[in-house]
Design a protein around this nucleic acid. Structure first.
Length: 280
DNA sequence: ATGGTGGTCCTACCA
């Protein structure tokens, strides 16, 4: 199983461990970020929905946790992404998408020339019709841009894209494929775009590489579900994508399901991967 | 059945 309830096994010598988590307010859950660091021993933590502008981002508290190398971008009350690292971040940047100023992407380069992208795809509202719902149109436009050559399509590059992509692409990424076909996050309009992005860039879906269908894997359970674990109406919205050279080094992938029960937790749980040291 | 819960920041908007 990809699921773990608490602490992960030790990181293999020389491996890089990367976690991604939609934290749903970094200031409210700063204590849970420490818990994530302790339970995973991650080298790099990518966050989405930090909901903090850069001037109020808790950079010093996070540096004190052992992550002094940081690259973040946030909006007041909404969006917001961050890359937090024990390892030096060589180059940093961000990109704007679908004609908006939203803080939905940051990128940085890790030691070894690994290009890391942290992305927060728009949720898309409730009505799965771009003609009637601007938010859904925005989401589709965002996904179309992700399928384009925004970073230069280079399948040989050492490149990672992680984040809350707000799409559950496969039948076993949702609790009921049939019932969610017209629910935003699992509509054909979205899942077809996912396929297009993956094939255009040669991305490998890390969790599914190691834990293939028909195994069910979720990373999000709604707050509106009283007994989230019992009813298990989840969706796999959070992803780690690897370019082929890095997919060949993929050692492990976990979903930290236990985080959904942390006191005052996020509705998303962290996804964690280990990338082994390159052969030399 | 058209809710249900949670975050931000003050009134509604977003997820």
């Amino acid at each position: 199983m990809p699921y773990v309830e608490a602490s992960l096994p030790p990181r293999p010598r020389g491996a890089i461990r990367i976690a991604t988590w939609n934290i749903n307010s970094v200031r409210l859950r700063i204590g849970l970020l420490q818990r994530l660091a302790t339970e995973t021993d991650a080298d790099v933590i990518c966050l989405q929905e930090t909901k903090a502008t850069n001037d109020v981002f808790p950079a010093e508290a996070i540096a004190a946790m052992g992550y002094p190398h940081q690259h973040f971008q946030g909006d007041k009350g909404y969006n917001g992404v961050a890359i937090l690292s024990r390892l030096a971040l060589d180059a940093r940047g961000r990109r704007l998408w679908a004609g908006k100023e939203d803080s939905r992407h940051v990128e940085a380069t890790l030691p070894g020339g690994i290009e890391l992208h942290c992305v927060y795809v728009p949720a898309g509202g409730d009505v799965p019709d771009p003609a009637r719902n601007e938010k859904f149109a925005h989401k589709l436009a965002f996904l179309d841009e992700l399928a384009g050559d925004w970073g230069g399509v280079d399948r040989a590059a050492r490149r990672i894209l992680v984040g809350d992509l707000n799409v559950a692409p496969l039948e076993n990424d949702v609790w009921s494929h049939r019932q969610l076909l017209d629910v935003v996050s699992h509509t054909p309009a979205e899942t077809k775009r996912f396929d297009a992005i993956l094939s255009a860039h040669g991305w490998v879906d890390a969790v599914r590489r190691l834990h293939p269908e028909p195994r069910r894997v979720y990373t999000w359970w709604s707050y509106r579900n009283r007994d989230w674990r019992g009813s298990d109406r989840g969706r796999r919205l959070d992803h780690v994508w690897l370019s082929k050279p890095l997919a060949e080094r993929l050692a492990s992938a976990w979903v930290l399901k236990g985080a959904r029960d942390w006191p005052q937790g996020s509705d998303h749980v962290p996804v964690v991967v280990d990338i082994a040291q390159p052969r030399r």
